[in-house]
Design a protein around this nucleic acid. Structure first.
Lengths: 109, 109
DNA sequence: AAAATTACTTTGACAGGTAGAGTAATGTTT
DNA sequence: AAACATTACTCTACCTGTCAAAGTAATTTT
């Protein structure tokens, strides 16, 4: 299980990417992250909803209410055009971060 | 210039790696990071000394005073055996973090 | 002698992440 | 039908890592 303070700062990317694929709601995203990472990483509930707030404020995602078929009411999120551009930036940034950190990890693996 | 909150959590690794190569003092490390990354990343002074404090408390580095030949007194740091083991863990962790984040960035580059 | 550079320290603030507790609807078990 | 589990979201108080800003002090350059 990976410490979350090492993933810190990359949650925006992860969540935006999942919402880019299709509109999703919080609980679903949380499940999807656990699934895709084989439980090597799990996002905490409180964190997830904090990220939503941040991203909505930045206008990179938008919310709308969905059905209530399996428990509480679902709040769906869609990515905005601004969000797509933002995600693009984050992807570029990630590849630069990898390069930089790898610079220092070289020869130690 | 890479945002530092995206490097966050990896400073321990970067600094430990530089001290592993040879004993170093703060100012030197700061210069070395700028140099090696071609100024794509610069560690802030306050941050650097905060990292030293954290690492010393964890007993992964030790300090001793050096000469005073070029300005202020230099405080050198050496890595402890515990520090080498710790760095080893961090390197493994980094490769897992890369895998996980790449999982979500796939197909977007 | 003044200014620039080298070198370290401390304080207070901020932002992202989190535990924990709470609310509510639906589905399952007994 | 009552009890329990699951789905789903929200809020508050707190912790930690990073950093701006200001300070101290010695040496080198102008």
């Amino acid at each position: 299980m990976v410490r979350s303070d090492i993933i810190r700062g990359h949650l925006d990317s992860i969540i935006l990417r999942l919402i880019l694929e299709k509109d999703r709601y919080g609980y679903e995203i949380s499940q999807e992250i656990s699934l895709r990472t084989n439980n090597r990483f799990q996002i905490k509930e409180a964190t997830l909803y904090a990220v939503f707030q941040r991203l909505e404020k930045k206008e990179v995602i938008e919310a709308y209410y969905g059905d209530v078929s399996h428990g509480g009411k679902r709040k769906y999120y869609r990515i905005t055009p601004l969000g797509k551009a933002y995600l693009n930036e984050l992807v570029k940034e990630w590849s630069e971060v990898k390069e930089i950190i790898d610079l220092f990890m070289e020869g130690l693996e």
